[in-house]
């Protein structure tokens, strides 16, 4: 069973997980894995989660997928808001240069995924202990995104 923290587009995340044969429900801390989705404002997202519990889960090696703002939350801070992040990864999220939000399909290691973001920690994909962080939205990245979700879930 996968636990999903409800925020932003978490409905789409539930449906995507179901479509690849995974069961999911709202995160309570008792599930086998955690999805930290996130669309929207960094500060609002950080204030909406139980940061101590989430930090302990991830730092304790709990299996986690952190999407978009969820991935940014792994870092120490974002220029978007003064609320600190989880601070598991060193570094900060900066406002992207040029036209924001950066929206569209961009390649990561040769595979296109769908992005929509205005801030970035400088990485499109990151690993920390048993956590995979992705700046793009696997649930809206066609078959490539679903493959990534399925591989994460199976791992």
């Amino acid at each position: 069973m996968i636990g999903v923290i409800e925020s932003g587009n978490s409905g789409n995340v539930h449906r995507a997980l179901h479509s690849i044969g995974c069961d999911s429900e709202t995160w309570t801390g008792t599930q086998d894995a955690l999805v930290l989705p996130g669309v929207g404002h960094y500060g609002a997202f950080m204030r909406s989660i139980d940061r101590r519990a989430v930090r302990a889960w991830i730092d304790g090696g709990g299996k986690t997928l952190a999407i978009c703002v969820g991935m940014q939350a792994l870092y120490q801070w974002s220029e978007e808001d003064c609320t600190p992040g989880l601070g598991l990864l060193k570094g900060m999220c900066y406002r992207l240069e040029g036209r924001v939000p950066r929206v569209g399909w961009f390649p990561v290691d040769g595979t296109y995924y769908y992005f929509t973001h205005s801030f970035s920690a400088g990485a499109d994909m990151v690993r920390y202990k048993n956590t995979l962080g992705v700046q793009f939205h696997p649930e809206k990245s066609g078959r490539a995104g679903m493959k990534l979700l399925a591989e994460w879930a199976r791992d």
């Binding site: 409905g11 990245s141 066609g142 679903m146």
Partner: peptide, 11 residues
Amino acid sequence: LERIAAECWVP
């Protein structure tokens, strides 16, 4: 719309 978007794997 909600049902369509939830089943749709792209934007």
